[in-house]
Design a protein around this nucleic acid. Structure first.
Lengths: 166, 166
DNA sequence: CTTGGAAAGTCAACAAGGCTGACATAAACA
DNA sequence: TGTTTATGTCAGCCTTGTTGACTTTCCAAG
């Protein structure tokens, strides 16, 4: 083992106290993780929900509202409110589906793409700093634990897209 | 490097695409992380805010309201609303400080401790499963990256308590 | 061809839990 | 005595979840 632990000590990472520290680490880290984009969003009178929508529309251009709902895990009514403001503000374009005209396909406008870039760059900067500080081996472990922590359905979805655009 | 990467490959974990996957992993994992206690809380008409208060009161018995505010990062009005219902429902006890009688020291009642245990056990169970699946080396990396991702002030606070009760 | 159900999306209203601002009280402090 | 600190409270606002009711569109069974 690279951390030099031996036999019995190997299970120390499963003590309730270690687990509690992991829980708190998730809580505090998630707050840091969202802090930078949140500051940008505040000035624009947008919220985290807008960020999430922009992120996933950017990642999956032309996705339908229904698709987006599944990824975001919110109700369509909740998403619709966010989507409506983004469309009104000219950041997102909604096109009626050609095959099935009940569907709406979503695209970022140039302005939407620019905001998305700005938000995600703020978030990437922090992630990049954390990755750099921790090193590649730690990053691999980080990803492994996070993947194991996801709900099964979501993990499958996440892994399916893992190398989609890489 | 223990993962056997060489020169150029070592920086692959810092590509924008890798960072984006890390960002999505945080998003999806955090949702899984909160899902189990959320289900319990729903049935009791409590929310995540109540869970956080119970958690940190349990961790730091006798903490003051002001201390709790600093850890939770919310306003006193927001915390007070949650705290008031927990006190009314007999889950938290508020004792006037002996040294400084302006302060209120917070303790879980037996009922509060029982709910906290139930909530944290649900969360620990998922964390334990994720840790076990990923292994001790991955867990070390997970913690390293999360710590690097926290805001500086919070990280100091987190690290100070790191071995406080271990 | 029509009709009924399912699916996608929209509108309305409500709740949780953040926030700010103003103010009250009690205790400590200078 | 006057100021600062710790806490609590009221009022009101915002974001972002929720459910319920509705429209439009598609499709398939009769």
């Amino acid at each position: 083992m690279a951390d030099g632990t031996t036999g019995g000590e190997n299970l120390l990472f499963l003590t309730d106290e270690q687990l509690r520290k992991g829980i708190e680490a998730m809580f505090f880290a998630y707050r840091g993780f969202t802090a930078d984009p949140d500051r940008i969003l505040d000035e624009l009178a947008y919220g985290r929900a807008h960020h999430r929508a922009l992120h996933f529309i950017n990642r999956s251009r032309g996705t339908t509202v229904n698709n987006l709902l599944a990824v975001l895990g919110v109700t369509k009514q909740s998403l619709n409110r966010v989507l409506r403001t983004l469309i009104e503000d000219g950041l997102v374009e909604s096109r009626v589906g050609r095959e099935d005209r009940r569907e709406r396909h979503l695209y970022l406008t140039p302005a939407g793409a620019e905001l998305e870039r700005q938000l995600s760059e703020a978030q990437r900067a922090r992630m990049r700093a954390a990755y750099r500080a921790a090193g590649p081996q730690a990053v691999a472990g980080f990803r492994q634990v996070l993947e194991a922590m996801m709900d099964d359905g979501i993990r499958a979805q996440y892994l399916a897209l893992k190398d989609g655009k890489a």
